[in-house]
Design a protein around this nucleic acid. Structure first.
Lengths: 240, 240
DNA sequence: TCCGAAATTTCTGTCGACAAATAAAATACA
DNA sequence: TGTATTTTATTTGTCGACAGAAATTTCGGA
């Protein structure tokens, strides 16, 4: 019973606040999808979700539409909507876009940032370092995402930040598949690379920031690729 | 009465087809927003739209959520949802992203295309040329968009195609403001540049394709900028 | 026992209605 | 006459219900 997720009580158990219903459902489901608490392919029954969140089907439906636009779920017309599969066939597209966004956002951050941005990056980097020290693979994946999003925000281009968010979330979903095979080597290197990136951005050295971002992206891409090729059950994940 | 758009009859007046209601509303509204038939800031009354499309509020609402996620409309909580303003303050973000997508998609097309792709590009380019010959500014804007989207599709990266679609639609919206001030010079040049781009892509000359895409983007950006600076009523469009 | 058609069930898409929240109008007061 | 407050009206957010489509089950025939 993969869909038997724990009941979610409305936060505070007080005023559920008019209009917040669908937003709440959206956030919860989104996190569950990204964290793979809801497996790709698992059905999203509206009636079941309505019961779980103690809401009518209408706000549930609104949340599902939002998720659908973002590509996190797929709706079969007149049939069940399911959690979107991770598309292992188009991974190269994904890697290409991810690398480009790493580079572009880092470049922009190097050019556009203000002191507050650097402070925020350092804070996120500290969280990331803590996750590495604690050998908490899940927190590591999440904080790494947040760190790079902070750079994107500092870059100040919303079009890039939005696409990058999507890509990093998808990345988080993929990495989540392999979190058990994490070793200690790579994360250590990531900590160092992150520090270098912050330094280059703070120094407004665009070319150096770009170089570091490229190398960092390369690391992550090859890491994922090695996980995938090492996975003997790869055929189990290929959507047919 | 800017919102008094012509009544839309269900296509064919036959079977409205279950499940197509909201999709239809979405498409129609999307086009009207992009074509500026619905002016930025104009309210999207659900009841009014329901009456206009002869539907209940539910499918209307679903379409509005879709548009909202794409940023085409803005929803004030518990209040009217309005057509999003064109953000003249963040134009540089827009130009930056547009230029990058022009370049990246053209590069990918030069590397990934197959013969069918070239044929499709030529077809779109022919439509564009016809619009230029007919001095039809509106068709010119639309067919230019379609031409470049065809290149993006040939490139084969859905992440880029999606972002590029958004950017080109936003561009179409901006250009629509200035269609009356179009002269004959620039479109002629665009026809030539488009032909050169097709040739470079067909020859799989990635660097040349990139160079042409950059130049093309530069043209368009400076064109828009000159329109904006020449517009004395610029303050009327600044969202306050 | 196995296969195909009919019946049933399940779930989505749509509808009309009600309640909360905001905006607009009306009223009271200085 | 101008401003603050109450009242009304409009509009969104949510709900329960119904009808159509698919999937599932049941039933009949070979």
């Amino acid at each position: 019973m993969a869909r038997d997720t724990t009941q979610v009580k409305a936060e505070g158990t007080e005023t559920p606040k008019r209009g917040s219903g669908s937003a709440h459902v959206y956030k919860v489901l989104r996190n569950e999808i990204i964290d793979l608490a809801l497996a790709p392919g698992s059905p999203m029954d509206e009636l079941q979700l309505a019961e779980r969140f103690s809401l009518s089907r209408t706000p549930i439906r609104e949340a599902l539409v939002r998720l659908s636009v973002e590509g996190l779920i797929t709706t079969l017309p007149n049939r069940a909507t399911i959690v979107s599969n991770i598309d292992f066939l188009n991974l190269s597209q994904f890697f290409d876009a991810l690398t480009l966004m790493y580079r572009v956002t880092t470049r922009l951050a190097a050019g556009h940032h203000n002191p507050d941005d650097i402070a925020r990056m350092r804070a996120k980097q500290e969280e990331f370092t803590r996750a590495v020290d604690a050998r908490d693979a899940l927190a590591l994946i999440a904080t790494n995402r947040d760190f790079h999003l902070e750079i994107a925000r500092a870059g100040g281009n919303n079009y890039y930040t939005e696409l990058f968010t999507r890509l990093l979330d998808e990345n988080r979903r993929i990495l989540r598949l392999y979190y058990s095979s994490f070793n200690d080597e790579l994360p250590r290197r990531y900590v160092i690379e992150h520090d270098q990136m912050i330094a280059a951005i703070a120094a407004r050295d665009i070319e150096e920031a770009d170089r570091l971002a490229s190398a960092h992206a390369e690391q992550i891409v090859t890491q994922i690729q090695s996980y995938i090729t090492a996975d003997k059950r790869v055929n189990a994940k290929l959507p047919l």
